[in-house]
Computed example of a mutant assay.
Amino acid sequence: MSALERDALERVLIGAYPLLAELPAPLRGDVVDAAAVHDFRDGAVVFSERQACGGLPLVLQGDVKVFKRSDAGREIVLYRVGPGETCILTSSCLIGGADYSADGVAEGALRLAMLPPTMFQRMIAESPPFRAFLFAMLSNRLTDLMERVERLAFHRLDRRLAEFLVERADAGFRTVAMTHQQIADEIGSVREMATRTLGQLAEQGLVELSRAGVRIVDAEGLRAMAVRDGR
C-alpha cells in the first residue's frame, strides 16, 4: 500500500482501537503493515465452528454475531463484537491453539482488519496496555456469559423476553426490527414459544406486534417483569 493509504489505515485502526496508539512505535508500525482489511456483507460467515483461527479480527464497522448452533438447527447468541472490542473466542483459540467452537456472522455491513497470529502473540508479549485490554475484555465477556447462562437456566421465558426487550429499549430502540425466529435465538428458545409469549405481552399492552417487528409500548411494565423475583 502507498504511504497515504498506510497513514489512513493507521488513523482508522487507532480511531476504533485507541489503545493501539499506546503501542511502542516499531510495534504499532508492524501492526499497521500486517493488518489485512476485509469487507463482509450482512449475514456473511466470518468464521465457523471447528475452523482453524486465522488471526485476530479488529472490527472497524458493523458487528460480528457469535453463536452456537445445535444439530437440530437451533441457535443461541453468545455475544457480539463491535468496533473497539475483541472476540474472546478468537483470543482463546489463538492463545490455546484450538479451533473455533462457535460460529460468527456479519451483522450489517462489516469491515474488519485481520492481524496474523504472530502479531497477536507479539502484542501480548510487548504491550502491557494490550494485555490489560485483552484481560479486561475476557473478564467482561465471561461475566456476560455467566449472566446469560443464569437466565437460560433459571428464568422463565416471559422474563427472558422482557429482559431482552428492556435491553433494546435502554439502547434506544422503540421498535425491535427482528423476526420471531431471531428473537427466539436471542433468548434461547424456539420460534413457536417466542411467538406465543410475544402474543401474551401484546395482550397485556406491553408491546405491539406488526410486520415491522415488535414495538415497545410499556418499557416500565417490561422492566417490572424483567426484575421480578419469580422464576
Rank of each mutant, 00 (worst) to 15 (best):
Leu198Val: 12
Arg74Trp: 06
Ile88Ser: 04
Pro116Thr: 03
Gly172Trp: 08
Phe135Ser: 15
Ile187Pro: 01
Leu115Gly: 01
Asp42Gln: 09
Phe133Val: 07
Val217His: 02
Ala162Val: 03
Asp39His: 13
Asp144Met: 11
Ala219Asp: 09
Gln182Tyr: 05
Ser139Gly: 14
Arg196Val: 15
His155Leu: 12
Val31Met: 08
Tyr79Asn: 12
Glu208Tyr: 00
Met1Ala: 13
Val105Trp: 02
Arg151Asp: 12
Ala44Tyr: 01
Leu145Thr: 15
Ala202Lys: 01
Val31Leu: 11
Val149Ile: 15
Gly104Lys: 02
Leu94Gln: 01
Tyr100His: 10
Arg131His: 10
Val59Leu: 10
Val176Met: 02
Met193Asp: 12
Gln200Asp: 12
Ala169Arg: 00
Ala72Ile: 08
Glu186Gln: 15
Pro116Met: 04
Leu27Val: 10
Met178Lys: 09
Leu206Lys: 08
Ile88Lys: 00
Leu134Met: 15
Leu19Pro: 01
Ser70Phe: 06
Arg41Trp: 07
Ile124Cys: 09
Arg80Val: 12
Glu22Leu: 09
Glu5Phe: 02
Asp170Ile: 08
Ala25Leu: 06
Val66Ser: 04
Ala194Asn: 06
Thr175Leu: 05
Met114Cys: 04
Leu201Thr: 02
Ile216Gln: 00
Asp185Arg: 09
Glu126Ile: 00
Pro26Leu: 04
Leu161Cys: 07
Met114Leu: 14
Pro26Val: 04
Gln121Val: 06
Thr195Gly: 06
Ala153Val: 13
Leu89Ala: 06
Ile88Gln: 02
Glu10Ala: 13
Ile183Lys: 00
Asp99Tyr: 05
Gly205Asp: 08
Asp229Tyr: 09
Arg69Ile: 03
Phe40Ile: 01
Val227Arg: 07
Leu198Met: 15
Arg11Met: 13
Leu60Tyr: 03
Ser2Met: 05
Glu85Asp: 14
Val166Asn: 00
Glu220Thr: 06
Thr143Leu: 13
Asp39Phe: 04
Leu209Trp: 00
Leu157Val: 15
Leu78Ala: 13
Thr179Leu: 12
Pro128Thr: 04
Val214Met: 04
Ala162Gln: 03
Gly199Ile: 14
Leu94Val: 01
Met119His: 02
Gly96Met: 04
Ala202Leu: 03
Glu208Phe: 00
Leu56His: 02
Glu150Phe: 12
Ala153Ser: 15
Ser92Thr: 06
Val64Pro: 00
Asp71Thr: 08
Arg50Ala: 15
Gln181His: 10
Ala153Trp: 09
Ile76Asp: 08
Ala36Trp: 10
Phe67Gln: 04
Val207Ile: 14
Arg74Asn: 13
Asp42His: 12
Leu110Pro: 00
Gly221Val: 14
Arg148Thr: 08
Pro26Ala: 08
Met1Pro: 03
Arg41Phe: 06
Thr195Gln: 10
Asp229Pro: 02
Leu20Met: 11
Arg156Pro: 04
Thr118Ser: 11
Glu75Ala: 07
